[in-house]
Design a protein around this nucleic acid. Structure first.
Lengths: 205, 205
DNA sequence: ACCTGAACACCGTTCAAGT
DNA sequence: ACCTGAACACCGTTCAAGT
């Protein structure tokens, strides 16, 4: 069932994925302001009306990009947790470092993921992707509670502090409200670890 | 030097502020997607080219709205700190509640403030507004350190944890990634206080 | 089943011309 | 000094028509 060559000039074959690829390229290289559906179509080498056979509208394409961002984030969190020692504190810190790094390395995708313009409500695949990200953090917290390292609280309560603090740090960095150079990984690392440590051990002495 | 009536049909008098007002109305009532410079001009009752006498481009107008958001946020933080008891822990919690509430109550302005599309770098007034917001939080932290309630750490280190966690919680709420109804103030309050308490006392028991 | 080209109603921005 | 109207080069979306 491979698309035959007679078709392949006119019928693209896998235009859907080509459009996702093109949109990502445009977004990363030229920014969100330059990301028009017409430009994406141009980069993919099709007419400006062609994308409408594969996405209901522009928002639907953007939602796919955002979903990809959540999947990448979840993968990074799980990788960080696996590669850390058994100690749940260390696991949480490394997950935090991974979280902030990924967010900061892909600011344009981050904006799509967290700007709130993408309405997750009706798309089950999208919801699953965001839930998986939350679960990755929850696993670490649950383990810390089970081992007696973390406070005996509902895990949803503790995971929210961890998520909120890492997410906030990342968003402040992306918005350039920290005096840190976002591309200076070493300094950013120190900052992340400092925030993570304070979250874990508390501000009060 | 009041603008005389002969002028006032053609020469608006205070178009700059009228445009800011119109833009705010459009943003709040119809959302960021509907916020075009032409629509703003329409609402203000002038031609679509008139705004260019008062703002270099669309981004300049949006930056003014974002700056207003920071000023309102700073005012709310200072008010919360003043109205709280002498106890720095309580002050910090109330400031957190105020922060998240303001952010959540004005999601569209929040997006402008923190999306990172507005480049603060070159605008001194804008930078001053963001710095004042940071200072409001820093004051509370400094006081807590001075009184011996908070850990003896550089205040910039502690303020970052507090800011990041409150900011993160607010941004997750705005992005509708929490299962909470953002308009349910009571539930949101419980959440904020839970996060604040965990930040202050730590995740580790 | 998938893609194109013309068409429609929008944008942001500029610039000569009006008051 | 401030505002308008026409103009230009863009958008997102739709739809009849092509392959």
């Amino acid at each position: 069932m491979v698309p035959n060559q007679a078709h392949s000039r006119y019928h693209h074959g896998d235009l859907r994925n080509a459009l996702i690829q093109a949109a990502t390229t445009v977004l990363v290289e030229k920014g969100a302001a330059a990301l028009s559906l017409r430009e994406v179509a141009r980069v993919a080498g099709v007419s400006h009306a062609a994308p409408y056979r594969h996405f209901r509208d522009k928002a639907a394409l953007l939602r796919v990009l955002a979903q990809g961002g959540f999947e990448r984030l979840t993968a990074a969190l799980n990788r960080a947790a696996e590669n850390s020692p058994h100690n749940p504190e260390q696991k949480l810190i490394e997950a935090g470092v991974a979280y902030v790094r990924i967010v900061v390395q892909h600011p344009e995708i981050t904006r799509l993921m967290f700007a709130g313009t993408v309405e997750p409500q009706q798309d089950p695949a999208y919801l699953a992707a965001t839930a998986a990200c939350y679960e990755a953090l929850l696993d670490i917290i649950r383990q810390g509670i089970a081992q007696g390292t973390f406070r005996q609280r509902p895990p949803q309560q503790l995971v929210l502090v961890a998520w909120a603090s890492m997410h906030g740090l990342a968003m402040l960095a992306v918005a350039r409200l920290l005096e840190v150079d976002v591309d200076d990984e070493l300094t950013l690392d120190v900052l992340i670890r400092s925030v993570a440590a304070n979250v874990i051990y508390g501000i009060v002495k």
